[in-house]
């Protein structure tokens, strides 16, 4: 922290008074809560609607907490999110970006979340931080190779 303070300078005006540090557990708790709430709903809608409704509920939950001006730190949010919910999170991030009042700093292994339009991506390694394009990350390349040829990819990976 002390070393970072010499490197970073925080600029915000007016002072940031709102924001959240979301760990993976936070997302997991929300997802589990919404799953449970849906199961206990006596007027449970059919499955297709349920999945749509879940995504909406998830996003509503976070939008409510991320609507205010602030800095939001998300640590690997994908750990609790299905691909379709990751898309919902991307939509929310885009709306936060367009609002111009919030900044999100996120660590992720998800190629979907890395592709967030307008985001600046940095790859961290033992050599430090460097700007990167999501298409150049190991995560994206591995997923692309797997998608292009699952059997061949697995043969090689497990050899």
């Amino acid at each position: 922290g002390a070393a970072l303070a010499n490197t970073f300078r925080g600029h915000w005006l007016p002072k940031v008074t709102a924001g959240w540090f979301f760990r993976a557990e936070s997302f997991y708790s929300v997802a589990r809560y919404l799953d449970q709430a849906a199961l206990e709903d006596p007027f449970r809608p059919p499955p297709d609607f349920l999945s749509w409704s879940h995504g909406e509920g998830f996003i509503r939950f976070f939008e409510e907490r991320c609507r205010r001006q602030g800095i939001y730190i998300l640590d690997e949010p994908e750990s609790a999110l299905s691909p379709s919910r990751q898309i919902e999170l991307l939509k929310m991030l885009q709306r936060m970006d367009q609002s111009g009042t919030a900044q999100v700093i996120m660590a992720t292994h998800s190629p979907l979340l890395m592709a967030c339009p307008g985001a600046r991506l940095f790859r961290v390694s033992r050599f430090g931080l460097e700007p990167a394009d999501f298409r150049d990350t190991d995560h994206f390349r591995m997923l692309r190779d797997f998608s292009n040829d699952p059997d061949g990819f697995l043969d090689e990976a497990l050899y």
Binding site: G1, L4, A5, F8, G10, V16, T17, A18, G19, W20, F21, F22, R23, E25, S26, R65, G70, I71, I73, D75, E76, I105, M106, A107, T108, H109, L113, M114, C116, A119, R120, L121, F122, R123, V124, S125, R126, L129, A132, F134, T137, D138, H139
Partner: peptide, 29 residues
Amino acid sequence: IIVGENGTGKSTLLEAIGALAGYDEAGGG
């Protein structure tokens, strides 16, 4: 957005940034 292998210190970096912003761990301001 920060990407990297496990063990490269992503979470530590986020915690340090959060501390600079005055956040408690997993909490809000």
